[in-house]
Nucleic acid binder design. Structure first.
Lengths: 248, 248
DNA sequence: CGCTCCTTTGAGGGCCATCAAAAGGAGTGG
DNA sequence: CCACTCCTTTTGATGGCCCTCAAAGGAGCG
């Protein structure tokens, strides 16, 4: 059962992440129904797990603040990181297939999350078509993004991967309405390496070069994009000519 | 509207792929309702597309016979292959996110498919809980498998990738009740290379070595597994001791 | 039979991993 | 606040895996 909301409770209806999170496209009355089943969890500390491989699947999680990494330890004992989740993102869908989580998710930072008990969410979605569509959409997005990750690993050089990563993070901050050419990124270089299929040494060398080339810097969890066009070019992203005209 | 079924129509109810395909876990009356919306398509020839990047998303597709590759052409004009679909597999979920297909799917072989109009499938799923669960499950599986693909690309050597690929295909044939140590595989070596993140040259060299080592061979679309244990060892798969005892 | 695409085989080289070691930060307990 | 430890990051030297390039042989198809 959902907890009784206190006067100070921040519900979905007045959460700043509505545009990014699940409520997108829901009318107010439906957001309120969603709000009923959302369980606001106590904050997690760095290193704590939302779930681990083999855990019973019970809930999806929406992030209110902080960063989460989705990862696994392979048979041979090496870590592989599959993605990073920012405020407004929803994760946990890896457990739907077998009612058991196939991957692990842990906090890279102090974390504030909402828990969405899946059975209840599912029942509600049968009555709220837009919510149902949201769930399908988020799951489809998971797979599509994983395949973009595959592209990165298959066809991009180490420099391109790094540039694309920084640019991608910047875009995600932009979507959320934050400053996006200078932001805090609480991810270890080591973890980025494990996400990009590189070694920490290579990441370090590339960041040094990007800094001296005046493209971007990332030191002490602070990212600064100095030359956005150069960054995009390096990432292999074609700049839309019309968009460039608007800038000028 | 669904076509009128002829006396010769093979419906979901008497399809040999029920255990693999969508009807899994449905009672007969529900299978019949699913059958009502399934649209049996005329056969496709090698090279024809089920859909392409940018096509409007309308249906999921279930494969009755043949092999499909899911792929894309990157910005830089290179092909990346994301997966191969065998009889009983369902594909097309890449279109759910934006109502537009993000990838392309084409026949590697003569192909026989069923089309499942998504709107109708979705409506039906609201009334048939097990069908609803099936859809969620298949979508979750897509993402999970894509991440296993990532593992392959990140942490396995070329030999391991090749071994894992052949072993994986063998297991998929096994699940379907076919002979699984000697089977026809209508996939070009070139396409396997594009799936494994390798070049055709490398694939060729590895297959030559696996053949001379007496592990497996793949010539002219015929795969033969000669030493299954060695293949698994090469793929980096730990053999369960109890399972080995049963063999002896 | 001729065309095209796929596959094979060989030679050479580049990108990034590996190994090693030192320096820098973060967290802990005194 | 400092000493201590552990983990992360940096920097350099070396080498290996697999790509690239090249060309010949084979398979499929009109």
């Amino acid at each position: 059962m959902a907890d009784i909301k206190t006067a100070f409770h921040i519900g979905c209806g007045n959460c700043g992440l509505q545009k990014i999170c699940f409520p997108t496209g829901l009318v107010k009355s439906d957001v309120d129904r969603l709000d009923m089943i959302v369980d606001r969890k106590p904050a997690l500390k760095k290193g704590q797990h939302l779930y681990q491989v083999g855990d019973k699947f019970q809930s999806l999680f929406a992030i209110r603040a902080g960063v989460v990494k989705l990862y696994e330890i392979t048979d041979s004992g090496e870590e592989v990181i599959h993605g990073f989740y920012l405020p407004g993102d929803v994760l946990g869908m890896d457990g739907v297939e077998n009612k058991t989580h196939q991957f692990s998710a842990s906090a890279l930072d102090s974390l504030s999350i909402c828990s969405l008990p899946f059975d209840q969410l599912n029942d509600l979605s049968l009555q709220v078509p837009n919510l149902h569509n949201q769930i399908l959409k988020v799951m489809s997005k998971e797979a599509n993004e994983s395949r973009l990750h595959t592209d990165l690993l298959m066809k991009k050089s180490a420099d391109q991967r790094m540039a694309q990563f920084i640019f991608g993070m910047s875009e995600r901050y932009r979507e959320r309405g934050y400053v996006y050419d200078s932001f805090r990124l609480a991810i270890l270089h080591r973890d980025v390496a494990l996400y990009l299929g590189l070694t920490p040494e290579t990441v370090s060398r590339i960041l040094a070069k990007m800094h001296s080339d005046g493209i971007a810097s990332w030191k002490k969890k602070e990212v600064q994009i100095m030359d956005r066009d150069a960054l995009m070019a390096l990432a292999g992203i074609i700049v839309d000519r019309d968009e460039k005209k608007q800038k000028a």
